[in-house]
Amino acid sequence: MQITPRVKLYLAIWGALFALTIAEVIITQVGLGKSTVLAGLIVMSGFKAAAVGLFYMHLWWEKAWLGAVALSPFAFTALFAVVLILENGR
């Protein structure tokens, strides 16, 4: 198989996903504060999910409207979370 620039990009993302997974495990075990760990985990998992969506699922090269469709579950899930929090506050 030919190592094209696109294949190089896929392999670079694979390396980043591997490194971030290791970093996620390490950050939970080095005795940092709970909120720091939570923030770090959210940022790293966000990066990993975005890398998979943008480059492996080719959203980077797709029409913008398809990207909006792909992002819509995140918006609806956030809305669901807000409603639950408000209901719990009653």
């Binding site: 996620e24 939970t28 985990l41 959210i42 990993k48 999910a49 998979v52 492996y56 699922m57």
Partner: peptide
């Protein structure tokens, strides 16, 4: 491939929020 990457993407979130 879209289905398979989606399964991977969801696992990234499950691993973070359920295990870590």
């Amino acid at each position: 491939g879209l289905f398979w990457h989606f399964v991977d993407l969801i696992w990234i979130l499950i691993f973070t929020f359920v295990y870590l």
